[in-house]
Design a protein around this nucleic acid. Sequence first.
DNA 1: CGGCATCCCTGAGGATACTG
DNA 2: CAGTATCCTCAGGGATGCCG
Lengths: 134, 134
Amino acid sequence: MTTTQERGEGLDDLPYNVFAKACPSRGTLEHVTGRWGGLTLGALYEGSLRFNELRRRVDGVSEKMLSQTLHALERDGLVHREAQPTNPPRVDYELTPLGRGIAERLLDLIHFVEGRMDDVLAARERYDETRGAR
Amino acid sequence: MTTTQERGEGLDDLPYNVFAKACPSRGTLEHVTGRWGGLTLGALYEGSLRFNELRRRVDGVSEKMLSQTLHALERDGLVHREAQPTNPPRVDYELTPLGRGIAERLLDLIHFVEGRMDDVLAARERYDETRGAR
DNA sequence: CGGCATCCCTGAGGATACTG
DNA sequence: CAGTATCCTCAGGGATGCCG
């Protein structure tokens, strides 16, 4: 028996539904919106970048996490990895068309948030002062 | 001296830049795109919901995490909490105008991802089979 | 340069019990 | 119903070292 929960309560009629725990789209969304995934996609939106360039762009990411993030994005088909067998090695990462579509929407969100930070910060102050910064 | 890193390499000229480690927008973006934040905002987009309704919508979220998530979103001014002092208590959560703006963009992203899951799944199979599912 | 392997620790987050 | 308080686990993620 299909419950409304499994179908997503009419949010949409797509075969995939992020709100359901078991849906694979949830995993991909987490890769995309995860701590480093979003910033990585955003950084690559401007053009292809090498590993260490990327690392400098995404301020604070460790080598390990960037590597791990890139693998997940590559596996999901959002990022293409192009390795040149030169010495020293040169590896470029770039968005796939699918990755571009996602990055676009992500950047839309990011820019919107950045543009509203003054409101957010003001809301925080009001909240903290009302509730005694508990 | 201001480096390109601090300014975000020309991605935008806003005073806030998610790519910088210390920028407060990074924190808010994480609330919004975090494991439960995004799903919570998405669920509230359809209309106000009570605590346990929300809990059922966001499949898999624990009581504690939902509570915590809602507090963060309320503090950032994205969600409004309306408590009625009845018995039993009734508390409704709804998006603020700012929260709506964010949720809209987030749902845009979510629906895009859901709509492309077949591509993602296909890419995964190709990846796993090439690299031996290591 | 572009990684992978390993160790280790913090904190996100689940389970449970209790309160107004 | 709508939470808060505690405990505890495990995995996210930092630091370090090594390699092609």
